[in-house]
Design a protein around this nucleic acid. Structure first.
Length: 464
RNA sequence: GUCCCCUUAGACUAUUGGUUAGGUCACCACCCUUUCAAGGUGGUAGGACGGGUUCGACUCCCGUAGGGGACGCCA
């Protein structure tokens, strides 16, 4: 049978970067084996699920260029779950639980006080027939719970090997809520089985759910899939990724000037290796080299440094034209709309200096506005002194007669400082400051050429 | 607290009982150089700890410590 995997996010928030990685591993596994990648929206939590989040998830996956073959929504499959619930009822595997939320809360609180682990005590599983009838005729709200079988449950995990649970650790979990809507643990099993999912690749935060689900597979007579629980991504503080770590949603990265290629490449490197020392891989290469055997067991720290390095590396690989398009929105946000030709010229100069697309504004904004903001310290140093100011004036004066291409400009400037008995840097720094407002930029003569004579002369006069 | 999982440098990883423990990011130095980048060269830095098993352990086993995850009418 061919490989079928799924990514099953719940639309209760934007697509998390860790979720994207889970999706990626599933995607790579499916494509590697020529199998099927199913996207299933797990929206059974009607209170928290929102369409906008589903949209965000879909949009994020598309941005990362992960395409799916089949699409489902659990909210559209209610009758299927109901059917299987009936079977469990007939087989006496489930029971009605009339405990109220307040009661359960109280039980939990007591356990907490006694420092004992909370587990549903199974009170309603021991209801006499009379008590049950009584509660039913009263029309009391109830949930359906699954009656855990005694014994042990073993997960044969592709990443971790055998994981054994004593079923006494498990409690009778809820299959359907009081409003009749089935819960996660119930729906996943039915869907994964009915959708013929062969391999379940998901975060290790699901390990503790797995023994419950395994019981359901058995109770419903389904064939068990293979499991691969992948390590989580953690933040620099070694706990769950949080906003402090610089972005938790995929859209934080797409909007933050990261390229999808870099993001994918980076995520693929977390907790997995690809059989060589190479670090830069395209989606195609990842697909070819991916193997669950190469997935690590320990959580991986999200290292922003490496992401930025990769992003810069992918930016440098882009054609000038592509990059120009990518960078436009960031300029537009600052009301900069340069013409194509100039943009391309600037891109050529700035390309290898960009870590994120948005850096274009900080690095090269001066090309597109005469509104120069001088670096404060540098301003004090160069423009509050008579010496450099005088030099700047003389330089500007002689510059009027020079052809504005970088070679001529360099020849001229070198001659200029030589004549004065100065070093090249003595003129370069104040001129750069006058033209760009900063102490760092692309090569000065290229900057001058790109800015053009009028602008250069104009800006050289400003500090006076 | 209980259960489950994990442990090679600051970070990501290679190593599947015999290696001078390899690569990448970050960091440092040097080269290039008008600055910054990019690029090049070199460098600092690692098997958590304690016991076994073995001729030989990073690698296998046990314990300790540390870390992570789960403990919902969330997924």
């Amino acid at each position: 049978m061919s490989v079928r995997v799924r990514f099953a996010p719940s639309p209760t928030g934007n697509l998390h970067i860790g979720g994207a990685r889970t999706a990626l591993f599933n995607y790579l596994f499916a494509r590697h084996h020529g199998g099927t990648f199913v996207l299933r929206i797990e929206d059974t939590d009607t209170a928290r699920s929102k369409k906008e989040y589903e949209d965000n998830i879909l949009q994020s996956l598309k941005w990362l260029k992960m395409d799916w073959d089949e699409f489902y929504r659990q909210s559209e499959r209610m009758s299927i779950y109901k059917e299987h619930l009936e079977k469990l009822k007939r087989d006496g595997k489930v029971y009605k639980c009339f405990c109220t939320k307040a009661e359960l809360e109280e039980k939990r609180r007591k356990c907490d006080l006694m420092k004992k682990p909370y587990k549903y005590d199974g009170k309603c599983s021991r209801l006499t027939e009379e008590e049950l009838k009584q509660l039913e005729t009263e029309g009391r709200e109830h949930v359906i719970r699954y009656r855990i079988e005694p014994g042990t449950t073993v997960i044969n995990d592709l990443v971790r090997g055998a994981i054994t649970f004593d079923n006494r650790e498990l409690d009778d979990f809820v299959l359907t809520r009081s409003d009749g809507v089935p819960t996660y643990n119930f729906c996943v099993v039915i869907d994964d089985a009915l959708m013929d999912i062969t391999h379940i690749i998901r975060g290790e935060d699901h390990i503790s759910n797995t023994p419950r689900q395994l019981q359901l597979y058995k109770a419903l007579g389904f064939k068990e899939p293979l499991f691969a629980h992948i390590p989580l991504i953690i933040g620099a503080d070694k706990t769950k990724m949080s906003k402090r770590d610089g972005g938790v949603a995929v859209t934080d990265y797409s909007g933050g000037g990261y390229l999808p290629e870099a993001t994918i490449n980076f995520l693929a490197l977390l907790g997995c290796s690809y059989g060589s020392d190479e670090q830069v891989y395209s989606l195609e290469e990842l697909t070819e080299k991916f193997s669950v055997a190469h997935i690590n067991k320990s959580p991986a720290v999200f290292d922003m440094n490496k992401l930025e390095w990769l992003n810069g590396s992918y930016i440098r690989q882009k054609s000038d034209k592509e990059l120009a398009e990518l960078v436009k929105p960031y300029l537009a946000a600052k009301n900069m709309a340069p013409d194509e030709e100039k943009l391309i010229t600037v891109i050529k100069l700035e390309k290898e200096r960009l870590k994120k697309l948005g850096d274009i504004v900080e690095n090269a904004g001066f090309f597109f506005t005469d509104n120069i903001e001088y670096d404060k310290e540098a301003y004090e140093k160069f423009f509050k002194n008579a010496e450099p100011l005088k030099l700047l004036g003389e330089f500007e004066h002689e510059l009027r007669h020079i052809t504005f291409d970088k070679a001529s400009l360099e020849t001229f400037t070198r001659g200029f400082v030589e004549k004065k008995g100065l070093k090249l840097k003595d003129i370069v720094h104040p001129v750069r400051l006058a033209l760009t407002g900063k102490l760092v930029s692309a090569g000065l003569f290229e900057v001058m050429e790109t800015l053009g004579k009028n602008t250069v002369l104009y800006r050289l006069n400003l500090p006076k």
